[in-house]
């Protein structure tokens, strides 16, 4: 098995804050590998280290076989990056942005023109090529960044939160591009996301990261089977705050209140647990309106591992600033 990315005990410290606390993983050639975790978990820091923009405090990382600290030039030649924050020149046209990028990567002449056309057509921006990027929508800018990152046909593509802040259709669109990239060029893809659906739909393997540490790694199926359980949702007529503490049945591992009057219960096997739950609620004189169940999601895995939801994790001040900045720029 050939590895395009290997990371060993990577640490990044900012003063006394440890953003990345000793992570290790490998990504095989042609794999789509995802970092799933809340904001501030260390995902972007890891991408910045792997793309040679930051120096790690400790540990070792190779990309395309080159050490990111000792041979940054060689690494840079093999990678394409779509940063979380926009990095386009808004005063130039889409075509010019790609032209400059191509020249910075040593492409030129007819070959560069063909590549630009191919990339712009791939993300369906060819007809907007002569418009200034200022006039592009958020989704168009993201697509242009993807086109730019693939222009020099990198071996490895890094995508930092590729669909953050985009509408559902655009997101689905971008997922198609990412899958198509791997299919057509065999590109190895490393992406970060805090969207469970994105990780589940796109990634061959997922590493769940929290507070700078990888807390679980595997395929979506493998991660979910860690729980070996189902989630039962019971909608109640009235939600009593202490209802969870009253439900003590054998086989219920976790009880929490979700939106509305609904509680979610983690059980070993839903079909066996539901009658018992209903009988218990009946005894407690709590009226039940609806019952449903489903297989656990990655969010449940995250809750199981950390005790909180991914979207509950509060954005750091820096993150909030960035979001505001993005809102202003777009």
């Amino acid at each position: 098995m050939e590895y395009d990315i290997t990371v060993e005990n990577l640490v990044k410290r900012y003063g006394s804050i440890e953003a990345v606390r000793g992570i290790s993983f490998t990504v095989s050639r042609g794999e789509i590998f995802g970092f799933l975790g809340p904001n501030g978990a260390g995902k972007t820091t890891t991408i910045h280290i792997l793309t040679t923009l930051l120096k790690p405090t400790a540990g070792k990382a190779t990309v395309a076989g080159y050490d990111v600290v000792k041979e940054p030039d060689k690494v840079r030649r093999c990678i394409g990056v779509v940063f979380q924050d926009p990095s386009l020149d808004l005063n130039l046209t889409g075509y010019e942005n790609l032209f400059i990028h191509g020249r910075l990567y040593g492409l030129n002449g007819q070959r560069l023109r063909e590549k630009i056309e191919e990339a712009l057509k791939f993300v369906e921006l060819w007809e907007f090529r002569d418009k200034e990027v200022k006039s592009y929508s958020g989704g168009m800018r993201r697509r242009l960044e993807i086109a730019r990152a693939m222009l020099h046909t990198p071996k490895i593509l890094f995508l930092d939160e590729p669909t953050i802040g985009l509408d559902p259709q655009t997101r689905a669109h971008i997922w198609d591009y990412i899958r198509e990239l791997r299919r057509s060029y065999g590109t190895t893809i490393f992406l970060t996301t805090h969207y469970m659906d994105e990780a589940e739909i796109l990634c061959d393997r997922i590493a769940i990261i929290d507070h700078g540490k990888i807390i679980a790694m595997g395929t979506a199926e493998e991660l979910k089977s860690m729980l070996s359980s189902d989630i039962v949702y019971v909608k109640l007529e009235h939600l009593n705050g202490e209802v969870c503490s009253k439900i003590s049945l054998e086989g219920i591992k976790n009880c929490r209140v979700v939106e509305g009057n609904t509680i979610a219960l983690q059980v070993r096997k839903a079909s066996e647990a539901i009658p018992a739950i209903l009988q218990l609620l009946d005894r407690l004189e709590i009226r039940v309106l609806e019952v449903s169940y489903r297989r656990p999601s990655l969010n449940d895995v995250f809750i199981h591992l950390t005790g909180r939801e991914i979207r509950d994790s509060e954005a750091s001040p820096a993150e909030t600033m960035r979001m505001r900045h993005r809102a202003r720029v777009r």
Binding site: T52, L53, H101, L104, Y105, R148
Partner: peptide
């Protein structure tokens, strides 16, 4: 960042 990450 686009310039810094380029091999140029």
């Amino acid at each position: 960042k686009e310039v810094l990450v380029a091999p140029a």
